[in-house]
Amino acid sequence: MQPRRDGAPETRKTMLADFDLVIPANLTQALQILSEDATRNGHDAMPLAGGTNLLVDIRARRAAPKRLIALGKLDELRGTTIDNGRVIVGGRTTLTDVLRAPRMAEHAPSLVQSARVFGGQMVRNSATVAGNLCYGSPAADTVPPLLSLNAELTLASQAGRRVVPLNDFFLGYKQNVRRHDELVTEITWPLPPSNSANLFYKLARRKGDAITVVGLAVTLVVESGKCSCVRIALGAVAPVIKRALAAEAMLIDQALTPTLIDAAAGQAVEACEPIDDARASAEYRCHGVYVLTRRLLTQAWERLS
């Protein structure tokens, strides 16, 4: 008879299960190792970026990779630059790097707001933006801002590279289009025009180091008194973080009024498929989406008009 294990308390996880660790010296090596793994080893290797999610999962036995490819030496992927009208964040850039990057508060106000309240200092010093995207938690703090900024990811493998809009990146709960032999080398988005506003709000059960209950980001561009671009990104209210497309459609080419904003906020709630958990009920999450959509749209509109 097999011993019973279902639902056993997670108390036995004092040590990490066995795995092998490879530390490539550069991107080329890293991609080569991932490529070999993909062809020979049956996808049992996982890239290790900051480790602030993956190592927790391994300890809790929610993940059991045979091999980790540590990306710590890939300094060529670390840092932020502006090129050709786009902000470029390297695939190894940490949250702290984002906070320290000059003028990032202008280039991505929502991302900076989310990075400030991302975990605690030590986690921000280790965790990478790309890692936060790839882990794909529905509560990931950097995803709503980057979705609202219309970010794109560059995925590189030995076979080449491709650019994927963040909007198309996620396939389902903790699932995305990254192949096992690929790494995120860049995250980019267009420099926001001066007639734009970009806001983020994290609703959580406490102010410091908390898991998000609702994370909401809004980008608004106003031209000639009307919204020429609206992006509303909803975090922690569905299996994947996504845009409230129907709500956005209601606002495009419109001058915003309280009534319209209210209607759009109601529409944003329609996009939610939240769960009940110990942090909040589904009902409250929907309420949060309504309130925050209304609030951020109002603030953005007021700032621009």
Binding site: L55, V56, Q121, M122, V123, N125
Partner: peptide, 26 residues
């Protein structure tokens, strides 16, 4: 042992990290 409390923080090249979320080899 999961980055929630910060009791294990050490400096790596002057920057604080949670040593419970850092593999020694790295």
């Amino acid at each position: 042992e999961k980055g929630d409390c910060g009791a294990c923080a050490v400096l790596v090249d002057g920057e604080a990290i949670d040593s419970c979320l850092t593999l020694t080899w790295t």
